[in-house]
């Protein structure tokens, strides 16, 4: 039995993930904490503000916690995947990457191996948020049959996977290019802000100025949130005094957008890795 190249890299990254107990725990507890504190605090506010707005008949009204829990999954996935490539910078600076670069392993295997590891972490976190959300009273999967729930969970995992791959590829490309961890930290923070706030993760985007609205319409995070809400809450619902409806077209468009983004990021990563010199 032989091992495909990317599995070797994946194995090592998971080994570290499991070995650092604190890292493991914090990455699993952190999203739950977001839900618990930010979610509950904000939802108390929003529910108060929007309580007076009449709900059109026949529409499923969801509370703010339900609305934003998709945002919390999206945000957690964004952070996990954007920071997922940083390990490469440390490996490079500590000389650990030399062993790999001098071996017959293909560069694509490194990119995919790290990607896979981040996907596993992200999916795990998403499932924890879903589970914890249900404990907190989030109204996921309203009136779904068990098989519909299974499809919905599969859909969520699909969206999280494609999105996480896109951003971990981006993160890997930056990490292999840069020299200093501090610089990398800065670049990633700089990226996170607009991606996170110019999206529909925590609030509706309709009230945005035009420019911001265009940006957020093409924001991969918006694509992800669209998919998550469609699968977790349903194709139409009422939240924050506004009606949301996601048709099959929106979901397919969002998924296509994510796939295009991810393929693009993979090409960039490959280009950076082919050029990388590690001594």
């Amino acid at each position: 039995m032989r091992t495909p190249g990317f599995v070797v890299i994946f194995w090592r990254d998971m080994l570290r993930f499991v070995r650092f107990r604190t890292l493991l725990l914090s990455s699993l507890v952190q999203p739950a904490l977001w839900m618990a504190f930010f979610g509950i605090a904000m939802s108390a506010n929003f529910n108060l503000l929007t309580a007076e707005i009449p709900v059109p008949s026949g529409l499923n009204e969801v509370n703010y916690l339900t609305f934003m829990s998709a945002g919390v999954i999206a945000m957690t996935t964004l952070f996990t995947s954007l920071y997922g490539g940083i390990t490469l910078l440390f490996d490079k600076n500590w000389g650990l990457l030399r062993e790999v670069f001098a071996s017959p392993l293909r560069r694509t295997d490194i990119i995919i191996g790290i990607g896979l590891s981040v996907v596993v972490k992200s999916v795990l976190q998403a499932l924890i948020i879903l589970g914890f959300g249900i404990l907190l009273g989030v109204q996921y999967f309203p009136g779904y049959s068990p098989s519909e729930v299974a499809v919905a969970v599969a859909g969520i995992i699909l969206f999280v996977t494609v999105f996480a791959l896109g951003f971990v590829f981006l993160s890997s490309a930056i990490s292999i290019t840069m020299e200093s961890p501090e610089g990398l930290q800065g670049v990633i923070t700089l990226l996170t802000m607009p991606i996170f706030f110019a999206s529909n993760a925590l609030y509706p985007i309709e009230a945005f100025p035009d420019v911001l609205m265009v940006i957020s319409a093409y924001n991969p995070l918006t694509f992800l949130v669209n998919g998550l809400r469609y699968f977790a809450i349903g194709d139409s619902f009422f939240a924050l005094g506004k009606m949301y409806s996601y048709g099959a077209v929106e979901v397919v468009t969002s998924l296509t957008g994510l796939v295009v983004f991810t393929v693009l990021m993979f090409s960039i990563a490959l280009w950076r890795f082919r050029r990388a010199v590690v001594t």
Binding site: R12, L15, W94, L96, R98, E99, A102
Partner: peptide, 17 residues
């Protein structure tokens, strides 16, 4: 690469393996 082995000048071991 398939035919060589290397021991680098600096330590290149993963401390946590």
């Amino acid at each position: 690469r398939r035919r060589i082995g290397i021991v680098f000048q600096e330590v290149t071991l993963d401390r946590d393996m």
